[in-house]
């Protein structure tokens, strides 16, 4: 696969790639699952929203901003007790998914929220005029109309998660970034570092292209 590396290192590469995939995939899945309802809530309770409520919107927004403004490396160690509660351990790939998912949820909630804000207000008004309930408007109008924006947001999040996952080595999460640090940097093996960087570039390019293609497919404008 990477001919200039020893077979042992090649195995390590494959192992690390799987760990990265698990961390990014796991965190992304959780983030989308929680981020979608959070973003809908933010959107609906926001100014001029369908269920405007500062009482809900402001604390929720504050919490999300707090998570987003904490540097990831600090967030990771700061929530160790929570991680232990959820994952049963604070070390390893599974444990690393918890802080990654938390950071990604906060991140994607805002991205989703702005995708919802892009939805034409006239279309929402039309749905109201047709007697749709607020729930119907959110699920049948806002989400489908925002779909291209949502996919673009997921793409941005995946790319960021690939970057964040490199820091997961700090809690023994492994992954490609960790491999690059431990072998490429600490053991002075520039060929490992270069390979990691090249692979990550290819992964990010691939994700971006896939995301762009999907956006084009679902955009009917």
């Amino acid at each position: 696969m990477i001919p200039w590396l020893s077979p042992a290192l090649q195995d390590l590469f494959i192992e690390s790639a799987i760990e990265t995939a698990m961390m990014v995939g796991g965190a992304a899945a959780i983030a989308i699952l929680f981020g979608l309802p959070i973003a809908l809530l933010l959107h609906a309770t926001g100014k001029g929203g369908l269920a405007q409520s500062g009482l809900v919107n402001r604390p929720l927004g504050l919490l999300i901003n707090a998570v987003r403004s904490t540097p990831f490396i600090i967030l990771m160690v700061a929530i160790v007790p929570f991680t232990r509660l959820v994952a049963g351990t604070s070390i390893g790939t599974t444990a690393a998914i918890v802080p990654l998912a938390l950071a990604a949820t906060a991140f994607i909630s805002r991205l989703f929220e702005s995708a919802f804000a892009e939805v034409d207000r006239g279309v929402v008004e039309a749905a109201r005029a047709m007697g749709a309930t607020r729930m119907q408007i959110l699920l049948k109008v806002v989400v489908p109309e925002a779909l291209p924006g949502l996919i673009a947001a997921i793409t941005v999040m995946l790319v960021s998660l690939v970057g964040f996952s490199a820091m997961a080595g700090a809690v023994g999460g492994g992954g490609l970034g960790d491999l690059g640090i431990r072998f490429g940097y600490q053991r002075f093996m520039p060929e490992v570092m270069a390979s990691v960087v090249v692979i990550l570039i290819l992964v990010v390019q691939g994700l971006q292209s896939l995301g762009d293609w999907l956006v084009r497919r679902v955009r009917r404008r």
Partner: peptide, 26 residues
């Protein structure tokens, strides 16, 4: 009470038939 708008306000993600079906679906 049907309503028609200046900028049409159709759902861009739905086909013509699905747009027309929307009020019935709701």
């Amino acid at each position: 009470i049907g309503m028609v708008f200046q900028h049409f306000n159709l759902l861009s993600s739905r086909t013509v038939a699905d747009n027309v079906a929307f009020p019935l679906e709701v």
